[in-house]
C-alpha cells in the first residue's frame, strides 16, 4: 500500500464532516467515506477497505480510541494506518494516542485549506 486514495473519516459532528470531506476530496483528490460513529465505522470499514483511518477522539457511544482498538482486532483493518483528529492535544494525550498505534494526530479545529496537506504529511509518517 503506497498510495493514499481511500480515507474513512469517523466524526460525529455534521458541520465538521461536511467541511473535511470537501477539503479532502476537492483539494486532496481522495475518496472519502464518512461514518458518524464508531459503531458505523465498525460496520462499514471492511467493505470500504480504507487506506487510512481518520478518527475523532470524543464521540458519543464508542469513542475514537475504542474504535481504533476494535478495528485493530479485525483482519481487514489491523494494519490500516490511523490518524486521530482532536482538540485534545496535551503532550500526554498525544502520547496516549500514539501508544494506541496512531501514526499522527491532527489538531482541531483544522484549517480546511490545509487539511489535505496535513493528511498527506501524516501518511508519509506511516513507515517511521
Amino acid at each position: 500500500m503506497s498510495k493514499l486514495q481511500r480515507i474513512l473519516y469517523v466524526e460525529d459532528e455534521v458541520d465538521i464532516q461536511t467541511i473535511a470531506k470537501l477539503a479532502l476530496e476537492v483539494l486532496g483528490g481522495f475518496t472519502v467515506k464518512i461514518c458518524s460513529s464508531g459503531e458505523e465505522a465498525l460496520r462499514e470499514a471492511d467493505a470500504f477497505s480504507p487506506d487510512l483511518l481518520l478518527l475523532d477522539v470524543m464521540m458519543p457511544g464508542i469513542d475514537g480510541p475504542s474504535t481504533l482498538m476494535a478495528l485493530r482486532a479485525r483482519p481487514a483493518t489491523v494494519a490500516v494506518p490511523v490518524v486521530f483528529m482532536t482538540a485534545k492535544m496535551q503532550p500526554e494525550e498525544v502520547a496516549y494516542y500514539k501508544s494506541l498505534g496512531a501514526i499522527d494526530v491532527i489538531p482541531k479545529p483544522f484549517d480546511p485549506m490545509t487539511l489535505a496537506s496535513q493528511v498527506k504529511r501524516s501518511w508519509s509518517l506511516r513507515n517511521e
Partner: peptide, 8 residues
C-alpha cells in the same frame, strides 16, 4: 462541537 466547528 462548537469549539471545533467554529474554529474550522
Amino acid at each position: 462541537k462548537l469549539s471545533g466547528s467554529g474554529g474550522s
